[in-house]
Computed example of a mutant assay.
Amino acid sequence: MYPMGLVEKIFALAGFKPVRRVVVDSEVMDEVLEIARRSHPHEFAALLEGRQEGEVLHVTGLIFLPSETSDEGAVMDVLMLPPFTGAVGSVHSHPGPVNLPSAADLHFFSKNGLFHLIIAHPYTMETVAAYTRNGDPVDFEVVP
């Protein structure tokens, strides 16, 4: 078993409950698509900012931390995350056509938040996949 990650500790302190629905602001999704396109062929990575409203997780922004990226991966320094920032998960791109999580992605997901997005090339809504912290696929909605 892995030790509890920093973001997970923040969730525990904040008293997060089970999530039944995830909504992502359209401005956030537009920004993710644009950053992924501009970063190609390198990956990009960021944390998702949001809040839980009852059983709904609402993603409202992005948090950028110091990171290193290449065409083979992206690494964020999550220890640079200020406490209580509202981080609820992560997003990163894959420069190839596959949006399935790698073993490293699954390890990161398990320690850092509730909801994670992977966007694959060519970086369209059709190439975005969402996962729980356990790596299970999950549906989400994009809202205005």
Rank of each mutant, 00 (worst) to 15 (best):
M80S: 15
A87K: 13
V75Q: 08
P97K: 09
M80G: 00
L114I: 07
T60K: 11
A87H: 05
A103M: 11
A74M: 03
V91C: 05
S110F: 10
V91L: 02
K111A: 15
E49Q: 14
E49N: 01
H107C: 04
L62I: 05
I118H: 03
S93K: 10
F115E: 06
S102K: 06
A87R: 14
L62F: 12
H121I: 00
L106F: 05
S110P: 13
L65K: 08
A74D: 01
D105K: 04
S110W: 07
V75W: 11
V56I: 14
E68P: 00
V59G: 11
G96D: 15
H58C: 04
I118V: 12
H94P: 09
V78Q: 07
H94D: 04
T69V: 13
N112D: 05
L106V: 05
V98L: 13
G50T: 02
V59S: 11
L57P: 06
S70V: 00
L65Q: 14
S110G: 10
G61V: 04
Q52H: 06
L65S: 09
G86T: 01
E68W: 08
S110K: 11
G113A: 08
M80T: 05
H121L: 01
A74R: 07
H94F: 04
P66G: 05
S70L: 02
L65I: 07
N99I: 01
N112K: 03
S90F: 06
N99A: 15
V56Y: 14
S93D: 09
G54C: 02
L79M: 11
L106D: 08
S110E: 12
T60D: 09
E53M: 03
P101R: 05
G61E: 06
S90T: 13
F115V: 04
F84S: 06
I63E: 13
S93I: 02
V78I: 14
T85S: 15
M76N: 02
L48I: 04
F64K: 14
H92V: 01
T60F: 05
A120R: 07
S90I: 05
E49V: 02
V56F: 13
P82Y: 07
A104Y: 02
V78L: 10
L57Y: 12
P82M: 04
V98R: 15
S93Q: 10
L57N: 11
L106M: 14
I118R: 14
S110Y: 13
G54Y: 06
F84Y: 13
G96R: 13
V88R: 12
P83H: 12
V56H: 06
P97H: 07
P66Q: 07
E53P: 01
A120S: 15
H107N: 12
P97F: 07
I119C: 14
L62K: 15
L81Q: 08
E53Y: 00
V75H: 08
G89M: 03
V56E: 15
N99W: 05
L117E: 04
A104H: 07
H116W: 06
V91R: 11
P66V: 00
V98M: 12
E68V: 14
G50I: 01
L106E: 14
E55A: 10
P82C: 00
T85H: 03
V91F: 09
T69R: 14
P97M: 04
G113Y: 04
L117A: 03
P95W: 11
N99S: 15
L48H: 07
L114N: 02
F109H: 09
K111G: 14
P101V: 01
D71T: 00
